[in-house]
Structures are given as C-alpha cells and as structure tokens.
Amino acid sequence: MECIEFTIEENRPLTRKVNLLRLAGNTAAITRPGQFVSLSLPGFFLRRPFSVCDRDDHGITLLVERVGEGTSLLHTLPAGTALSVLTGLGNGFTGGVAGDSPLLIGGGTGLSPLFWLTKELTAQNTKPTVLLGFRTAADVFFEEEFCALGIRPLLFTEDGSAGRKGLVTDALPEIPCSMFYACGPEAMLRAVCESSSGPGELAFDVRMGCGFGACMGCSRATTGGMKRVCKDGPVFRKEELLWDA
C-alpha cells in the first residue's frame, strides 16, 4: 500500500451511468489484475474503492458507476484535478493457473478487473471466453475495447435489447471452462458459483471503510473464518466462500 497523488487525465462518459477515468501517477504498487485503488474525494470523509481496469507505467484506468453522492461528484471532476490515492490494495487474481480455457464473467462495472486480466491472458497466448452482462443495450460498454484485444465478448442483457436475452449464468453450462474469473454484483457471483462445477475466483465489490484491513468494515464469512474483502480479498476462491453465514 502507498498513499500518493494521481491527476485526472481523462474523465468521459461511456454510458448514462458509467464513466471512464484515466489517472496519471506512479503505478508501481499495482501489480495484479483484481487489485484496487481508493480515492479521496473533495468534500467526502471516506475514500471510494475502485478496481483497476487497466494500468501502464504512467497511470491507471478506472470504470466508475454513478451510485451515490461520491461517485456523482467523481463524474464531474475535470482533467487536471489531483486526488489522493491509496494504491496497490488487495490481493488480485491468482496468475498462472487459468488453464487452456479460462472463462471470464463480468456484470456491469464488474468487467473492470477482467479487462486487465484479459490483456494479461492474451499476452500469454491464452484466449479466454468473456461473458458480459448488462441491464439493457443502453448500459453496454467496453465491447470494442475487448475486441481490440482480439476477444469478442458474449453479451447478455436482461431485456434482450443487446446480445442474448437473460443472465450471464444462463450460458455457463454450455461453455467449457478450465477456470472461471468473475466480478459483479453479489447475486451474480453466487449464481456463477452455483451453476459452475469447475474451480474459480471471484472479486467482490462492497462498501469499505479504510480499504487496507484496519476497520473490519467489509468482512465476510469464509471457511477460514471472517476475512476482510479489502485486505484478504477482494478476490476469493470459490470453495472458501460461505454464502449464507
């Protein structure tokens, strides 16, 4: 963990609810897809955690959905705004165990860490299958960005206005999978676990206090006891999760 300043380079809408933020700063502490950063926003006490969608030596890309007052403000901040950022948080996905047919499953902005993971996998000549779920056609984003990596994602919308009608989990039984990687709403993650027989890793998106393991604000029950999503996660293995505890 490091606490450093990043500067907004780009802040543009992808859909009516989701913005892409490009932040310039030192990215040395961010080493694995699934890790996150936590931004301090002017006028707000708590930081806001966001999964890293992409990184290079000069900065990071975040996908920010407008859900409340903090993210609404973040959508309005212009390029050039400096933000205090806690960087290099969380464990990230386990590398090197994806097998020959990894399956990546993202719901909404949950696709964020899966984009970077897709980049890593394709760089190792592994072609993952990517399933992306959205509410409607108007909510779809990042399809072209995945295509630019040589991976055409399979789209699902709840109303059928784009891609297949239904949920990403509907397609799971028909797709071969050596290992799955999922990120999205908790209900989606649970459904993925219940309809997939293979091994997998899941990244959780929860409200946090500190983001680095001090406050126990984001703990969840696992087979290894209570674990902090921010510090012990946000990525957990399928078999260690307890859903009804």
Partner: peptide, 22 residues
C-alpha cells in the same frame, strides 16, 4: 463475526460504522 454488511456509511464530515465487535 460481527454484523452483516453493509457496516459502513458516509456521513457529513464523518462516517457511520456498525461493525459489531468482530
């Protein structure tokens, strides 16, 4: 084990917590 999530909320000039002594 403490309380169910969410346990944390923003407040004007502060925050709320309901960890529950985990």
């Amino acid at each position: 084990r403490g309380n169910p999530l969410p346990r944390i909320a923003e407040a004007p000039s502060g925050m709320l917590n309901a960890i529950g002594l985990q």
